[in-house]
Amino acid sequence: MSGDDRQNEEDRQSELAREHKERQAKRAAAQTAKSRRNTFIGAGVAVVVVAGGIFAATTLVKKEPAKVSAESSPSASASASTEPSVTPSAKTGPVTCTYKRETGVPNKFVGLPGKKPNMKLKKMTIVTNRGTVVIDLMTDAAPCSINSLSFLAKKKFYNNMKCHRLVTPDVSGVHLLQCGDPLAKADGKNPTDGQGTAGYVYGDENTDISLSKGVVFMTQAGDAMGQNNSQFAISLSDENNQIGSGYNVIGVVSEGMDMLLGLASSGKDLLLNDADITGDGGTTAPKNPVIIKTITFK
């Protein structure tokens, strides 16, 4: 082999090694991102009662979204005191929502929402024992999500409900308050906290917004799609942007952010639930309970 051939061969091997290293780095980054998303939200993990009353948990796999058409005229981006950079998905056309009964998880079923959402709803007010939170809604971009929440609120589904999950960056790398499990005890002991729903699911919409501080979104299990239910979360830090988009964003907090940020400053303010059957979802409830008194829309 001539000197030029040897040099060409060495260059080729060097290039192949470099490409191999780049592929490994990309796979590692993708796996890390997937892992962080899977541990970010634990709502809606399927729980099946088997003989003897034993609970067997299985994480939902990615599914095709439930059929849902959420089309309407575009609107301006909702604003908040935290001023996250969010822009609702612009859609046009008639609005029809589809909700599918789901009995494979613990649930409190109060009926299915209607197919025609009220497109005039602009604000969601959550009154809790710790203070009041007002959310500017993105109704034009997430009509079916807001239609579901409004329906459940009218049924008093959320009244006197404990928010089952509060996490801080030092505990899990993200910062959020999660509510909407009608069966949660939020006592650090209940093994199925974070699994309860309203007994139905619906499709994805308005999923292109990152989870900046103040953003309110519906939660799903891991990489699930089209499995939105009664549970929602409020992002309490811009650190959550690392998760990227993919969740149904319904709006942005415009009042009450300071109260929310004061709920917990570190892991010492949380109840670690070692009995949680999924190792996620209800693992960290607030030591001082956050109880929803009412949710109203206007």
Rank of each mutant, 00 (worst) to 15 (best):
N240R: 14
V201S: 03
G226F: 03
G104S: 14
S245E: 12
N190F: 02
G194K: 11
S150V: 09
G131C: 13
S79L: 05
M119D: 10
V61W: 04
M1N: 13
R23C: 08
I277A: 02
C179G: 06
R23A: 12
Q231D: 08
K155L: 05
E239D: 07
V201K: 02
A46H: 12
R165H: 09
I146K: 01
I41T: 11
C163R: 02
T168F: 07
T58L: 04
G226Q: 04
F109I: 07
T168W: 11
M259G: 13
A224I: 12
A56P: 04
D11G: 09
E255H: 06
V86D: 08
I126H: 01
M257C: 09
S14W: 04
F109S: 07
H175N: 12
K268N: 13
N8G: 06
S265C: 05
Q7I: 06
L149F: 05
N288K: 15
A275V: 05
A221K: 03
K293A: 09
Q231E: 12
K26P: 06
T139G: 00
A51E: 14
S235F: 00
I146L: 01
I54R: 14
G281F: 02
N8A: 14
G256N: 07
I126L: 05
L121F: 06
G267S: 13
R12M: 10
L149Y: 03
T39L: 02
S254H: 05
E205V: 15
K154E: 01
S212D: 12
D181R: 01
C163F: 15
I41D: 11
V48F: 05
I54A: 13
G3Y: 09
S237R: 02
V45Q: 05
D269F: 01
D269A: 09
E9I: 15
D223Y: 08
G281Y: 02
S265Q: 11
V253I: 07
P289Y: 07
S172C: 07
M124K: 00
K34T: 14
Y200I: 04
K298S: 12
S14E: 09
N190I: 11
Y99D: 10
G93F: 10
S2N: 15
E64N: 14
A70T: 13
T125A: 10
K21E: 08
S235L: 02
A224M: 08
N107S: 12
M138S: 08
V47P: 04
A66S: 11
R6D: 06
E10W: 13
S230T: 06
L166C: 04
Q13L: 15
N190D: 15
